[in-house]
Simulated scan of single mutants.
Amino acid sequence: MRAYVLQHAPFEEPGNILHWLQQQQAETHYCRLYAGDPLPLVDAIDLLIVLGGPMSVNDEADYPWLKAEKVFLAQVIAAEKPVVGICLGAQLIAACQGARIYANHSKEIGWFDITAVSATGDLLALPSKIKVFHWHGETFDLPPGAVLLARSEACTNQIFQLGQRVIGLQCHPETIEENARSMVLHCADELVDGSFIQTADEILSATDAQYQQLSQLMAQILDYVVRK
């Protein structure tokens, strides 16, 4: 398996995804867009992971590579390659399919439940409720043809499926403790009073069991998109 990881900031790492890739004995390549790395060839991809980042999908003036990335993602999706987008990555998937990305009514930062949405068909099956890690201020409209799989109290569109190989995750199931600490370190200015914003201490008090649940969820998602 040839896996490519699109990275938008040095402090947003693949977390527990890396463990899954190692278990699959995947040939893993990083594309550090923030450092000017070129995008891979679509035909070279067996799995594409699109990570998060502090910028907005709409910030093309400040980050010109976003425009090329959206075109590239549309090509990868059209080629029916397995794709998992996380936070900014999910928003980029939505944007490249013509959906609108905009400020959510509230930032959602910390550990909050997501709830599965009832849907029919050959779709990713999710736990009815699970506490996951969040760090976002924007949301998006579902792209045409997408099916909503999970929501949270603060944000309706949390997880969606597009076709049989594409999953968009507004939340961060890739999170391991190092990820959470890195986010708190680099984005501490966002930890202000808010209905859905936890303190640094609350964020960093997550248990091993919480991280294990996330790892299991992320593995389930990855197993689903690469299934034969």
Rank of each mutant, 00 (worst) to 15 (best):
M218F: 10
V57S: 01
H29P: 11
Q23T: 11
R32H: 11
E177D: 13
N104D: 04
V42C: 08
L73C: 01
S195I: 15
T139A: 00
Q25P: 05
A74M: 13
K70D: 09
V50E: 00
I203P: 02
I221T: 02
I221K: 01
R181H: 12
P173S: 04
S152L: 06
D201Q: 14
Y4R: 04
F72T: 04
N58L: 00
N58E: 07
V42K: 01
R100M: 10
Q212T: 15
H105I: 14
P40Y: 05
T115W: 14
D59G: 02
A3K: 01
A219L: 06
A35L: 13
W20S: 00
D37Y: 10
H186E: 02
V192Y: 15
Q170A: 07
L217M: 09
K228T: 15
A61Y: 14
Q97D: 05
Q24L: 00
E177L: 12
P144A: 13
G52I: 02
G110H: 00
F160R: 03
M183S: 11
G137K: 02
Q161H: 08
E27N: 15
F196T: 01
A78M: 07
A61Q: 14
Q220K: 12
A99E: 07
Q91W: 01
G36T: 08
A68E: 15
S182M: 08
L21Q: 03
A219T: 11
Q25G: 12
E80A: 15
H136K: 08
V225Q: 03
D189Q: 13
I101Y: 03
L39N: 00
P82A: 05
G89M: 04
W135I: 06
Q24I: 07
K131V: 09
A90N: 07
V184H: 03
W111A: 00
V225S: 04
D201P: 10
G53K: 05
T139L: 00
P143E: 04
R100N: 13
E13W: 13
L123H: 11
I176S: 08
V84E: 00
E12P: 02
I176D: 13
A188F: 11
D208G: 13
P38N: 05
L191N: 05
Y211C: 10
E178Y: 12
E138S: 12
H136R: 07
I45G: 03
L41C: 09
W135A: 00
L185Y: 14
K228R: 15
S195P: 15
G121F: 09
L124E: 06
D193W: 14
